[in-house]
Design a protein around this nucleic acid. Structure first.
Lengths: 187, 187
DNA sequence: TTCATTTTTTAACAAATGTAAAAGGTGGGC
DNA sequence: GCCCACCTTTTACATTTGTTAAAAAATGAA
């Protein structure tokens, strides 16, 4: 397992010693397209790193589903509220393709955080990177119109644009599917 | 300084030993209303904890300012991109009242993160809490209408509603001042 | 292929929000 | 107290986006 982790981007900042510690607790898993890996309103005990495939996080509203996150190879994938507050989360995570993932129990990860200072700081940086990306998206919702957000998305994530249904991209961008269709049609 | 930190909420999860370590590097400071404590496009070298007063973070657009964060007593206050990536940030932070703050150099804080595992995990939790709050706001922008976002804001932050100019609250909620005025008028 | 299902686009209309300008309100400094 | 600057509300109109429904296009399984 150690040999495998070594080549994954997110682990590249770690020393060999730290990586060996982590590798004792991880498992490679695969799930088919359509799997709901994380369920809303449940405490989900695993943390995943996506190695191949695409996933989305969404919440259910009264008459709509809002997709608010996409993951591709290299993304970390977990129930925010389970991970952070040990409480049931608000998001479902669905695999949009067959996926290969690295799996680690939250309990094991927390033990590592409290036993190994290098891993604790690695975990800190993961949260910080997610934070800055999320805040940028929030700000963009105010500054940029829907058309510009769509352009940015196509520029930064051309592969998601090809692989993910437009209805999911529409809600990710904060518009209805009809509006996204209008934007794409250039009207 | 240690005696002072002891009574601040954000430090309450720390052991005495860790708090003593931190207290060696912090300084209590005060700044008047109107001070721009953090400047966009600069690497800002300090991390602050707000003890009294109110602050806002905003970015400048072409013909508007977007406020995307408010801080009250207990909030942490720093340039995200300086702190996380050691690069110039995108936000200005303005004090909306006279403020008392605890100040610590980022360089010192990072040294503490790498020297003390308890402080490293404390820093991890700070980022995680900001992350979950920011993601919730992003999701609420899709699920809730402007009127409901305003209601939530008044319920959760009645004191901000009293102390902060409505034009700042409007952009925080993602609407124009005219729309906010309409919502408040019940129309 | 063909059929059934799902996704995407289009259309017509309704609702929400934005823009610009004016009027009213508020508070600080002289 | 008065004036000035700034903040908030109001009005009228323009624009964007949403809603609903239907048609067209794409997808996938037998």
């Amino acid at each position: 397992m150690y040999q495998q982790l070594k080549h994954i981007d997110i682990f590249k900042s770690l020393s060999n010693d730290a990586l060996i510690e982590i590798s004792k607790h991880v498992l490679g898993v695969t799930y088919p397209k359509g799997t709901i890996l994380i369920h809303a309103d449940k405490i989900e005990p695993y943390f995943y790193i996506l190695q191949s495939g695409v996933a989305r996080a969404y919440s259910d509203g009264e008459n709509q589903q809002i997709t608010f996150w996409f993951g591709e190879s290299g993304s970390v994938l977990f129930s925010f509220n389970s991970y952070i507050n040990n409480k049931p989360g608000y998001e479902n995570i669905e695999l949009l393709e067959d996926c290969a993932l690295i799996q680690i129990k939250l309990a094991d990860l927390f033990n590592l955080y409290h036993a190994n200072i290098e891993i604790a700081n690695w975990g800190r940086k993961i949260a910080e990177q997610e934070l800055i990306a999320t805040e940028r998206r929030l700000i963009d919702r105010s500054f940029k119109g829907a058309a510009e957000r769509y352009q940015d998305f196509s520029n930064h994530s051309p592969s998601l644009l090809k692989r993910v249904a437009l209805k999911h991209i529409a809600s990710y961008l904060g518009v209805t599917q009809v509006t996204l269709s209008r934007i794409r049609g250039g009207k």
